[in-house]
């Protein structure tokens, strides 16, 4: 298992690096869209897949990251903080949002948690629409600065692709390290049996809060990248559908598995594009495929296999 990973990982990475010139502008743009969802998936996977907390309001943190960057790097307030400075800021903002949501729901489980997080997502969405002086309401924020390194501005689909790619590598690395640590084990134990985990010495409140905070941080990065890439943000970009889509791609890919999240995003976001060939039946075919998938592979395409113990002597 460990060895196969060492072989296939560099090949996959190399393939993905060489992909854009082969597929051209349009598909590179699509790959960028997929990439942002991969990042969101990796983040939500920490909350849902590892810690087992059903969060239906994940879009809220994505929105916080996006608006955080948009407000600090657009003519709206006339502030222009560079992308690279603001990126950690967006992570901190989203993490703060995660903690803010985490505190009131610490004692909730399952369905109740899902309902409250759903509400939180909607509150943020409504705030974006109605908090005119800050967010400019449904008219959104326009002319958001693109990231730049010196004179090199990230403004073409190709450049964006590589920036998003770097973001994914970073996110996947962090999530994987957490998963294979004392913290990941605590999350999974909590997911399996919360009461038994508490009695085995795991501080449930702390690890729930940690899961929400860290999960939200990934959405903060995704949001900042989304805002800078689109150059504008509108409340419609942050509807409930985003939360549902991210949750779906985790389930399709395989809960708790990072390669699963990536494949899930490719299928869920990429497939509708590929299916453009079948015109008006596109969404019908897509929906049918999802149903078939849940019947034939209910645990997802790449279910998380508890890894072999690498450190064992």
């Amino acid at each position: 298992m460990v060895n196969t990973k060492k072989i296939y990982l560099p090949i996959v990475v190399l393939f993905l690096v060489l992909l854009p010139p082969m597929v051209g502008n349009y598909w590179t743009q699509v790959l960028g869209n997929i990439g942002i969802y991969v990042m969101l998936g990796i983040g939500l996977n920490v909350v849902v897949g590892f810690a087992g907390l059903l969060d239906l309001g994940y879009v809220a943190f994505y929105a916080i990251g996006a608006y955080g960057y948009a407000l600090m790097a657009s003519p709206h307030f006339g502030i222009h903080i560079p992308f690279w400075v603001m990126l950690p800021g967006c992570v901190a903002l989203a993490a703060g949002g995660g903690a803010l949501l985490g505190i009131p729901v610490l004692r909730m489980r399952g369905d109740y948690l899902a309902i409250v997080t759903l509400g939180f997502g909607e509150i943020i969405h409504i705030l974006l629409n109605n908090l005119d002086p800050l967010t400019n309401g449904p008219r959104g924020l326009l002319r958001i600065d693109a990231p730049a390194i010196g004179n090199f501005v990230v403004n073409s689909p190709f450049r964006w692709y590589y920036l998003i790619f770097a973001g994914i590598i970073f996110s996947a690395f962090v999530a994987d390290r957490l998963n294979n640590s004392r913290i990941g084990r605590a999350w999974i134990a909590m997911r399996e049996d919360q009461d038994a985990a508490a009695v085995m010495g795991i501080n449930i409140l702390k690890y729930k809060l940690l899961a929400f905070t860290i999960g939200a941080s990934f959405a903060g990065i995704g949001g900042a990248i989304f805002a800078a890439r689109q150059g504008s943000v509108f409340p419609e970009n942050f509807s409930l559908m985003v939360s549902i889509n991210v949750l779906c791609l985790i389930i399709i890919g395989g809960m708790g598995s990072i390669p699963g999240v990536i494949l899930g995003a490719v299928i869920l976001i990429g497939l509708p594009e590929i299916l453009r060939g079948v015109h008006q039946y596109r969404m019908l075919v897509f929906g049918g495929l999802l149903v078939a998938m849940m019947i034939f592979r209910p645990t997802g395409f790449i279910p998380s296999a508890r890894r072999k113990m690498e450190l064992r002597e």
Partner: peptide, 24 residues
């Protein structure tokens, strides 16, 4: 009440959680 989808070794490691320190 074991953690069913964790390996036997991981179950024991969870027990050792409170004797370890590593943070995020």
């Amino acid at each position: 009440r074991l953690f069913g989808s964790m390996t036997a070794l991981e179950n024991i490691l969870v027990g050792r959680h409170c004797r370890m320190k590593a943070g995020v």
